[in-house]
Structure formats: structure tokens, C-alpha cells
Computed example of a mutant assay.
Amino acid sequence: MVTPPPLKGRGAADNAASARFDALATQVDGDWLDTRESLDDVAPLRTTVSIEAPRTIITRNTSPDIPFDRSVNAYRGCEHGCIYCFARPTHAYLGLSPGLDFETKLTAKPSAATLLRAELSKRGYTPKPLAMGTNTDPYQPIEAAFRITRALLGVLLEFGHPVTITTKSDRVTADLDLLTQLASQNLVAVAISVTSLDRTIARSIEPRAPTPARRIEAIRQLAAAGVPVFVSVSPVIPAITDHEIEAILEAAAGAGAYAAFTRPVRLPHEVAPLFRAWLDAHYPDRAARVLHLIHSMRDGRDNDPEFGTRMAGKGPYAEMLRRRFAIGCARFGLDKPRLELATDRFRVPSAQLRMW
């Protein structure tokens, strides 16, 4: 099989990983960021956004190795195009490919805030931290136009509901007005993902995400505003980004990060062939070594789906990463205990109060 050449500004090289489910009818209503760069006379691969009208917005999970039991995703797909993204296979549920479709055929949920308000208002609802950014980035480029994440934060502030946010975009600072109000009530924690400080490497693995410098600056702005902010050194890619663990921790600590966490790269389902094609295109000199080290953490496989080990990996290499990370966190003061967000501020506002 001939590996297709990489597409400028995209993570996946093609749609080789075929969709597994029936197609979802879509309504194209916009193009985004496609004139930002010259594509050397190649027709631009346009990004389209479909409107989804779900019946509910809170997703529940009972996974024992995930630190939250509920989440909200404002969008499906993600234009950041991170080649390693474990959420890529979810696009197959729409009848679309986890490859280029995941990056270019996005879905937005404009009714998300209305649905969230209704679900939080239900009799017997018990508040626990709601996670945002667990599947696709809540601050990917289309948030600037749709502002669904901002609307969701407004509802959470109205209800006094705790929320955690994971993103690799400095666009999160556009919502500092809401985040600072949530933080003043111990209702929010933000994690900024930094995989590399090298702009060339970052652009290769996360082609449309903000630069590392902008992410570190976002940490600085959040911390200065009193918003608890973590750095997520995730995922660590063997022989490509693993040498940067300590440097990322130092930069984040210097910017005011509260603490840090990390995960080694995972390659579930269709992510594995996409990642292999990316390796062949961008790092052919070390592709075999990268895969060997990944397999050493996953019992010889591309992915270990078992609870308890899938997030951390196994074996000597995984243990070495854990030790380096722990030593680095201690050195730079990022080994603080987990934050416990408040749940006792939750209240269902009356219709009269909402009018005001």
C-alpha cells in the first residue's frame, strides 16, 4: 500500500479508515479557516459544519478509570486535526470516516445550552463536576462563530454547577469573564494540553491547534485571573515528544499552572492505521521505533483497552515515563493534590430570577 502524502494543514492523510455506520444527513452552513494558508495550487479541503438537534446533552459514563461521570460535548469532530486523537473513531457513528472527515465534517449543537438548562432543572438532579473537552475540543475554531461553549458556561454559572474544561486552545481566554466568576465560587478547573514546545513538531501532530507559545500564554492569563489551571502533558509520543516532558512542566510552572497530569499515546480502532500513515509521512526514520515503544506499553498491541492500564500503560518504558513525570512535577511544584470543586452552590433558578 502506498502511503498518501500529507495534506498541508491537516492531520490525517486520507479517509482510508472507512465509516462503519449509516451516513447522517447534513446541512452545510459554513466554511472555516480554509483561506488561512496557501495550498500550493491544490484545491482547499473545505470544512463544513452540520447542525445537530439532540434530545439530551449530558453524556454519562461508568468507566472506573475516568475521573468524572458526566460530560457535555458542544461539537462532533475537531478541526484541530490531532493525528493521535482517541475520539476519531466516534465519527464512524455518523457514517463518516475517522480520517479527514473527522477534521473537515463537523457537527455543532446550538441547542446545547437550552438542553443543559432543562436537564439540570429536573427533579432529583444531583450535581457533580461536568467535564467539557473529553471528546472534541470545546474551543476549536468554530467556537468563535457558534459560541456554544460560552453559552454552556453561562448556564453552569447560573446554576452554580461545577465544570472542568480540557482544551489545547488559547481561545478559552475569551471566556475569562465567566471563568473568573466560576472560579470565585470554586466551580471550575481548566486543563491546557501541551504536547510539545517545538512549533514544528506541534504543527505536525496538531496542524490546526494554536501554537505551544499561545497555549503557555493561556495558562499565564488564566492563572493571573485566579482560574485554577492544569497542564496536560498528553499524549506523550515515544521518540517524538517524550524528551520534552521536563521542559513542558517547567514552562507551565513558570506561567502559573497549579498542577499537571500526563497520558501516553493510545491508538484505538481506526486511530492506529491513521497514526501509522502519519508516521510514514512525517517520521519515516523512526517509525519502527515509535511503534515498538508504543507496543511495549500495550502488551505488544497498538492499544490496550483494559480499565486500569489503558490510560497509563505497562512495562519498563511506561514506568520510566511515570517516574520522570513525578520527579519533574515535584521539582517544579506541580505535584499538588487534586482540586475538589464545590457542589453545594448548586441551585435551580426560578423562572422569575431568569427573567432578571
Rank of each mutant, 00 (worst) to 15 (best):
1 M>Q: 11
2 V>I: 13
3 T>C: 14
8 K>S: 13
16 A>K: 10
18 S>T: 05
19 A>I: 06
22 D>C: 06
24 L>W: 11
26 T>R: 15
30 G>H: 04
31 D>P: 00
34 D>S: 14
35 T>K: 06
45 L>P: 00
47 T>H: 08
53 A>S: 11
55 R>W: 00
65 D>I: 03
67 P>F: 02
68 F>D: 03
70 R>K: 10
71 S>D: 04
75 Y>E: 04
79 E>W: 00
87 A>G: 05
95 G>M: 13
100 L>W: 08
101 D>G: 12
103 E>W: 13
104 T>L: 13
104 T>A: 14
106 L>C: 12
108 A>K: 10
115 L>F: 06
116 L>V: 11
118 A>R: 15
118 A>P: 03
119 E>H: 13
124 G>V: 11
127 P>K: 14
129 P>W: 11
129 P>R: 14
130 L>V: 10
130 L>E: 05
135 N>G: 01
135 N>A: 14
139 Y>V: 04
143 E>C: 05
146 F>D: 12
147 R>L: 13
148 I>Q: 09
155 V>W: 12
158 E>K: 12
160 G>E: 08
166 T>F: 02
167 T>I: 14
168 K>V: 02
169 S>G: 09
173 T>Q: 02
174 A>R: 15
175 D>V: 08
182 L>K: 12
182 L>I: 11
185 Q>L: 08
186 N>I: 02
186 N>Y: 01
194 V>D: 02
197 L>D: 07
212 P>C: 11
212 P>G: 07
216 I>A: 05
217 E>R: 08
225 A>R: 07
239 A>I: 04
241 T>S: 13
245 I>M: 12
247 A>S: 14
249 L>W: 04
250 E>A: 09
251 A>P: 01
251 A>M: 02
253 A>N: 02
255 A>K: 03
263 R>V: 10
266 R>C: 07
267 L>R: 10
267 L>V: 04
274 L>K: 01
275 F>N: 13
276 R>F: 05
277 A>E: 15
277 A>C: 11
282 H>C: 04
283 Y>D: 04
283 Y>V: 03
285 D>S: 09
286 R>A: 02
286 R>S: 06
287 A>L: 10
290 V>N: 08
291 L>K: 09
295 H>D: 07
295 H>C: 04
299 D>C: 01
302 D>Q: 01
302 D>I: 00
303 N>H: 15
307 F>A: 15
308 G>L: 11
310 R>I: 03
310 R>F: 01
310 R>L: 05
310 R>V: 01
312 A>G: 03
317 Y>T: 02
319 E>M: 01
325 F>P: 05
327 I>A: 15
329 C>K: 09
332 F>I: 08
335 D>Q: 06
336 K>Y: 00
337 P>F: 02
339 L>K: 02
340 E>S: 07
340 E>R: 12
341 L>R: 00
342 A>E: 03
348 V>R: 15
348 V>D: 10
351 A>Y: 03
355 M>W: 09
356 W>N: 06
